[in-house]
Amino acid sequence: MLRGKNILITGTNRGIGKAILEKCVENGACVWAHARRETPDFIKLVSDLSVKHQIEIRPVYFDMTDKEAVKKAIISIRSSKLPVDALINNAGVMHNASFQMSAEKALRDIFETDFFAPFFLTQMISNLMVRQGHGSIVNIASMAALDGNPGKAIYGSAKAALIAMSRVIANELGAQGVRSNCIAPGVIATEILQTMPADELEKTKELTPMKRFGSPEEVADAAVFLASEKSSFINGQVIRIDGGL
């Protein structure tokens, strides 16, 4: 589905991002796999996937909140002269606190990582996409952005901002061949769940029509679809991957 495509994915060292990396490579894409830092586990992951699928994976390391580092990475990507066919904005951090218990520092920190960082990165990459006349931007948002889940005042707000950004890009750059869509995962079985209260998790599972949590691979399948030409007339949408919640 992605043969011949070059895709930049952020936050690929674990969870949903790792699953997206695996699925993209499995579908034939060459990937710039972003991680915050180089670790032996990440190097092994990239190397194993590359050998298994005979696909080039180019690791890129930078702190998403460091604009200079992001810029350097984009210059390096641009100098490769390869098109950036898709950008998958996955990197982000979860935060749990009720509205009245949401501290200002956390608010600023989470917005920095979950909204400002992908905003600036997307600005830079979309410039390249406009020049090449095509591109697909996939933003990993959250059902918390749509449903106002208790305890997600900051996280949900940051992801809601990401959805708004995505809609604007869809409207402004659609005519230039650049699409932008969001995925809003429900509760997905990743290590991030450990940060959520157990009773809340159990309640969510019960409320989910499918009576289970989603897997990272189920989110990754949607990301692959949105990055591919199979979704060529889908623009400005939010796809929920939540088992019907």
Binding site: K71, I74, R78, F120, Q123, M124, N127, V130, R131, Q176
Partner: peptide
Amino acid sequence: SVGHMGLVAQIEEAFGIMLEP
């Protein structure tokens, strides 16, 4: 606004730089 991005591309290409947003 569309032409603006074309100008940015031409300038970046001419001088081998990347302009800040």
